[in-house]
């Protein structure tokens, strides 16, 4: 049943571009890139660290591929891995000092270091293009396929999204994933049973930066132009909104969050400049009234249904 649903979902995604307009194909490309971003963000939160620099690691991947493709003419197939690895390496350098902090300190410290990296892009006109960023990032080529078109790019991003999600899902279920959750549940106890807490925290941060970097590479080649504003704290707050709305308790939370918020974002397009108010309001409502996000709501709803069902079953017996 589960596999059937998954297969149907995959088939739906594969067939989708043939039924919707080009505009919506573009939206779906962004949606899938955001999925990689949100799911990788969840990986850090499973260990209990909330980062405010995740979007900057997307930028590291984007700038890496832009530099390599533009100045050295490297093909996408090489830069996508290098972009991810560059992001993971920067992530390791950033998280190293942050390991001394926790909770709010980690959040604000990651912001400071992320902002430092972002300001490097703003400061140096060569090679990063300064505040106006980089333009003319070449589109991807493979044989006869022109990835400048939306539909081929859709399939490319689709393959990467599936790969990333599967890897992230496997990590979540693996021993490593359980160790991360153990650290979140009780850090001191984890230390007592011989878990190297610092090492696992660093690893979670770096691995999630790797995936954010890949999302950045995919974004850079689609947009063709990037600038430091793409990766500032304002954009980061939107990522936080997706994750808060969905919840981070399960693997599916952030996915639900991105899906719902992108639908709301599209539906609210006529609101124009009032949109941030809507998003701010949603963020407030979820944090103050619905902690745990939609996934928590769904779980509670399921529990309620089961209670009702068991109550219904037990009644005739009496």
């Amino acid at each position: 049943m589960k596999y059937l649903a998954a297969l149907a979902g995959l088939a739906g995604f594969i067939l989708l571009p043939h039924f919707i307009g080009e505009y919506y194909v573009e939206i779906m490309i962004l949606f899938m890139i955001n999925l990689i971003l949100a799911s990788s963000f969840r990986l850090i939160t499973t260990v209990g660290d909330w980062s405010l620099s995740h979007i900057v690691f997307m930028g590291v991947g984007a700038y890496t591929t832009a530099l390599l493709a533009k100045y050295l003419g490297w093909p996408f197939w090489g830069t996508v891995l290098i972009g991810g690895m560059a992001s993971a390496a920067v992530g390791l350098a950033v998280v190293f000092p942050l390991l001394r902090t926790k909770g709010f300190g980690f959040f604000i410290g990651s912001f400071a270091l992320g902002e430092f990296i972002r300001l490097i892009w703003v400061k140096f006109h060569f090679p990063f293009g300064g505040p106006r960023g980089m333009i003319g990032i070449p589109s991807i080529e493979l044989g006869d396929i022109d990835f400048y078109e939306a539909t081929p790019y859709y399939y490319l991003v689709f393959i990467f999204t599936v790969l990333c999600q599967v890897v992230l899902y496997r990590i979540d279920l693996s021993r490593t994933g359980r160790v991360l959750k153990a650290i979140y549940a009780d850090e001191d106890l984890s230390k007592c049973i011989g878990i190297n807490v610092a090492r696992y925290r660093a690893m979670a941060f770096s691995v999630s930066a790797f995936f954010a970097g890949i999302a950045g590479v995919l974004l850079a080649h689609r947009l063709g132009a990037i600038d430091p504003k793409n990766f500032d704290v304002n954009t980061m707050v939107y990522l936080v909104i997706w994750v808060v709305v969905g919840g981070v308790g399960t693997f599916w939370g952030p996915i639900i969050g991105v899906a719902i918020m992108m639908v709301i974002g599209e539906a609210a397009r006529p609101l124009a400049e009032w949109r941030p108010l809507l998003f701010g309001g949603i963020l407030i409502v979820f944090l103050t009234l619905l902690p745990g996000g939609l996934e928590n709501l769904i779980l509670r709803f399921k529990e309620m249904l089961e209670k009702l069902r068991s109550a219904g079953e037990s009644q005739p017996a009496e």
Binding site: W50, G103, F104, F107, V237, V240, I241, V244, E273, W274, P276, L277, F279, G280, G281, I282, L283, I284, L287, T288, L289, P291
Partner: peptide, 22 residues
Amino acid sequence: PTRGNVLAGFMATAGVAFVLQV
């Protein structure tokens, strides 16, 4: 409502910032 959770309060006031700006 978010007392005891510094991060939640901090992120929720980011929402307040959006609201006031708009």
